[in-house]
Amino acid sequence: MDNITALGGDVYEIDTRMAGYAGITAGYLILGDRPCLVETGTSTSAPVVRDALASLGVGPEDLATVVVTHIHLDHAGGVGDIARFFPSAQVVVHEKGARHLADPSRLMASARMVWGDRLDTLFGELSPTEAERIVALGDTGAIDLGNGRTLSSHYSPGHAKHHVGLVDSATGDLYVGDAAGVYLPETGDLRPATPPPDFDLQTALDSIALFKALGPQRLLFSHYGPVDAVQDTLDRSAEELCVWVDLTRQAHSEGLDLDHAIAMVRDRTKERYTAMKADDATAEQFELLSGAPSNVAGILHWLDRVSP
């Protein structure tokens, strides 16, 4: 299948084809004794992911674990569907996200407030997962991949209060979710992801520092793909966060409303990213993943809390 890439170490990147796009959201299959899917993608992507797993030899009874870095719908929207397709799999999530996977009604209501009618085309509907199948992680935890191989979980809020990073003991891969931002492999651009309501600058920087301290061999971005230049990329993640926060803080101190703040920050950051100067499709892809409206709104929400 053209949406599967072997990354070595029995790890396979699966393009979940979010909303029909290529290269937007990745799921990863760790194909050991106890096969594990990291990130499901959206609900509408679930059949794509199921078919990819089938082509890699993972049938309905074979998947042992589904892990999500956090419960935003581009990462975990497919959990309920994947759980139904793979009835033996446990679903692993940070304890702050567990109840929303069991009962998604509040999460879906708030997502619909943000996205409106676009919700259905972009994400679809997160279906509930039976509570007894959900394993809730504390600040650290370990997932058994079989044969002594583990995926260790490290609480990394800042982007979202239910976010974890995951380290594979066999490969040294670190699944960064959105805590290190959004990476666009075609252009090498990296941009922060700072949506409301959970964004907090110091917490986000602390999470990036934790990722550096873990000493991973490679970063696996949910958006999108593997990056070998670990320390440089994490340094850049922190730098990008500070650039966006400084500009938004300036707009905030000038009393700009949300729309004007977004316009100012978008204008002053666009030179940083090749994607924003590229063709419209690439720019649109980047904006969908790490949109200025969402980023600026999240930073303003935080600023209103810390310096009203």
Results as ranks from 00 to 15, higher is better:
17 R>K: 13
109 A>F: 07
30 I>C: 09
168 D>Y: 13
303 L>D: 00
208 I>K: 05
249 R>S: 12
32 G>S: 09
204 A>V: 10
260 H>S: 14
49 V>I: 09
155 Y>C: 04
8 G>W: 07
77 G>T: 08
8 G>N: 12
233 T>E: 12
79 V>Q: 01
255 G>W: 11
243 V>F: 09
110 S>G: 10
252 H>E: 00
26 A>D: 13
187 T>P: 02
223 H>F: 00
224 Y>V: 14
3 N>E: 06
144 D>T: 01
81 D>M: 01
260 H>M: 06
60 P>F: 00
195 P>I: 09
55 S>H: 04
5 T>K: 13
23 G>R: 08
62 D>F: 01
70 H>Y: 11
273 Y>N: 07
247 L>E: 14
11 V>R: 15
193 A>M: 08
122 L>T: 11
179 A>S: 14
34 R>N: 12
243 V>S: 01
13 E>A: 14
133 R>A: 10
129 T>D: 00
257 D>K: 07
187 T>Q: 02
224 Y>L: 12
297 A>L: 11
40 T>R: 04
194 T>E: 05
201 L>T: 14
45 S>V: 03
97 G>V: 01
214 L>S: 11
136 A>H: 08
31 L>S: 13
148 G>M: 11
33 D>R: 13
152 S>W: 06
48 V>S: 05
198 D>F: 15
10 D>T: 06
9 G>N: 13
168 D>Q: 09
287 E>Q: 11
266 R>P: 00
161 K>R: 14
121 T>C: 03
2 D>Y: 06
161 K>E: 14
43 S>Q: 11
221 F>P: 08
74 D>I: 04
289 L>T: 04
113 M>E: 13
118 R>L: 07
80 G>F: 04
126 L>Y: 00
88 S>G: 02
212 K>W: 08
291 G>P: 00
91 V>N: 06
47 P>M: 04
195 P>Q: 07
152 S>N: 14
220 L>K: 07
77 G>A: 03
128 P>F: 10
253 S>I: 01
304 D>T: 13
234 L>S: 06
232 D>A: 15
242 C>H: 03
167 V>G: 08
256 L>N: 10
182 V>K: 05
87 P>I: 12
286 F>S: 12
263 A>G: 12
77 G>C: 01
233 T>K: 09
100 H>Q: 13
275 A>M: 00
